[in-house]
């Protein structure tokens, strides 16, 4: 783990200019829980590291009179969990944050960092010159691919490891990015890109870009939301499959809603058609739920060792629906 300097920029513009330097590889250290692993394993090489801790205006949770919620990128995962307003009104976000890693890492890790973390693929993290590291082979395709994607894969088969991203996308959240001297806001679902578009990076971020804020639009008063995460061990694990749901019910019928999966695709996975089919679904009608869930996993294209994820996807939908009413 070698780098030349560790600097504390005093403004976003200064930080962005430093990151954008074409002749150097400079990285942001927010919490650093992912960065340190990448540096130690030589997955990335850094010339300089930047710490944004003196930019206090990136660490906040603000509830606006309009009902919107704004969250600064340097807010820690623990601060999300402990926020009373989020706990009461955005169960999906509270649950997702509560199931990230361990208390120690939740105290260090930030919202921005969670959304930008690099994939956990064993070949990407290991000593393999894989496609995503500039090589010419995705070793997972013919290799150990139990934890890889079953949707939207190829030519690289990573899954997005974030728990917050599916939860936030189900709430229709937007992400703000400081880029070329100004802030732009995009739907969080458009922040992620698939390997078929570019297999060298996971987000739209360009050199010099900094994630600054998450905005969750005002939600219906009667929103029912939840996050279910299936993992191999009870604590400190990434999702095999996870499901974020934000729903509005009229009695037992869904009138509005969004389902977003983690652990199944290179980006948080949702289906436009699936979310459309949600409307009118009667949660007392087991047969209708079964065929809805069946249709949701129809597009699955598993590798040799991860067919179980399609079954999990189907079952997690049924589980979530049975628990939310």
């Amino acid at each position: 783990m070698k780098f030349k300097s560790y600097v504390y920029p005093l403004s976003l513009s200064a930080a962005s200019a430093f990151l954008a330097n074409k002749n150097e590889l400079n990285f942001l250290n927010a919490g650093g829980t992912d960065l340190l692993g990448l540096l130690k394993e030589d997955i990335i090489k850094a010339d300089n590291i930047l710490n944004l801790k003196y930019l206090k205006d990136l660490k906040y949770i603000n509830q606006e009179p309009s009902g919107e919620l704004n969250i600064g990128a340097l807010t820690s995962i623990s601060e999300i969990i402990n926020n009373v307003f989020i706990k009461k009104n955005y169960n999906v976000l509270h649950q997702a944050a509560s199931q990230i890693a361990s208390p120690q890492l939740r105290n260090i890790g930030t919202v921005g960092g969670n959304l930008c973390q690099r994939p956990r693929c064993n070949y990407f993290r290991g000593d393999f010159n894989c496609l995503r590291k500039g090589g010419d082979t995705c070793f997972a395709f013919d290799g150990f691919n139990k934890y890889h994607c079953i949707m939207n894969g190829g030519p690289c088969f990573i899954v997005n490891p974030s728990d917050l991203a599916p939860a936030l996308i189900s709430l229709g959240a937007f992400v703000s990015v400081f880029s070329n001297g100004r802030e732009k806001e995009i739907p969080l679902q458009d922040f992620y890109i698939l390997p078929s578009a570019n297999y060298l990076k996971e987000t739209i971020l360009e050199k010099g870009d900094i994630v600054t804020k998450i905005r969750i639009p005002a939600q219906p008063r009667d929103l029912k939301s939840n996050y279910i995460k299936i993992k191999e061990r009870e604590t400190w694990d990434f999702a095999l499959v996870s499901l974020a749901a934000s729903l509005v019910l009229d009695g037992k019928k869904i009138t509005k809603g969004s389902l977003v999966f983690g652990g199944v695709a290179p980006a948080p996975y949702f289906s436009v058609k699936g979310n459309k089919d949600l409307i009118g679904l009667d949660l007392k009608n087991n047969k209708a739920i079964e065929s809805f869930a069946e249709a949701f996993v129809k597009d699955a294209n598993p590798l040799s060792m991860n067919g179980y994820k399609a079954i999990m996807m189907k079952n997690i939908i049924i589980k979530l629906f049975s628990e939310i009413i």
């Binding site: 250290n29 650093g32 208390p103 120690q104």
Partner: peptide
């Protein structure tokens, strides 16, 4: 509480 191995 934090992991001292994960902090610079």
């Amino acid at each position: 509480a934090v992991n001292s191995c994960m902090l610079l």
